[in-house]
Amino acid sequence: MNGIVDNKLKLYQLTVIFSLLFSLMGFSYNVWRMEITEHNSNVRTASFEVLLELELAQLEQLVYAAHYDNDTELGNPRVGWVKVGLIEDLSSLTNDQVRLKAQNLTLVWSEQWQQMLESEAASMEITAKIDLVRAEIKRLLVSLN
């Protein structure tokens, strides 16, 4: 009789241990999944802020207004500095590739903003970097799971 009780007790203990391990694994996976989801959400939000709030498009418009229209109001370099700074700040919430492209955009902007009024090459170089940031953000958004 003791053997039957001991076997049932061992089976019960194994069931409890297995249930506990299974629930811990499930909880750990859930926490990990929530972390990934939150990270992806932050990346999406930052990316959409750059794309949808039209920071890149507004910067591109600013370059075109400055170069092609000689409009110092719409093509104001100080506004451009703000846009470039915001793009670089938001890129820190994305990934390394977008961050790198945004830093390159900032570098090119800092080197070319004074020539963008007169030089088509300067304005084209700035807009090429804007297009690279835009393309990298699109790649990042497609890659998110």
Rank of each mutant, 00 (worst) to 15 (best):
K129I: 00
I130L: 01
L54N: 15
W109L: 00
E118Y: 02
V31N: 11
Q61W: 15
L59D: 15
A46T: 03
N104A: 02
Q97I: 13
T106L: 04
N30H: 12
L117F: 14
V108P: 13
S47D: 04
V50A: 08
N70Q: 03
P77S: 09
T45C: 14
W32T: 14
V133K: 10
H67P: 00
Y64M: 05
H67D: 07
E120Y: 03
A102L: 00
T72V: 01
V98S: 00
N30G: 08
I130V: 04
I87C: 09
F27P: 04
Q112D: 12
R33Q: 05
V82R: 07
V43F: 07
G26R: 13
N42T: 02
S23W: 02
L86M: 09
H39M: 14
L24T: 08
L100N: 03
N30V: 11
V108H: 12
T37I: 01
M34S: 11
L93F: 05
T45N: 13
E38D: 12
E60Y: 14
L90R: 13
N76E: 09
W32F: 10
Q97P: 06
E111M: 08
V50G: 01
V133L: 02
P77V: 08
I126V: 06
K101F: 05
E35M: 09
M116S: 07
L24P: 11
L24C: 11
A66F: 05
G85S: 13
V108T: 11
N104K: 09
L100R: 11
E120Q: 07
S92F: 01
R44P: 05
F27W: 10
I126L: 03
T72C: 04
Q115D: 01
L93C: 10
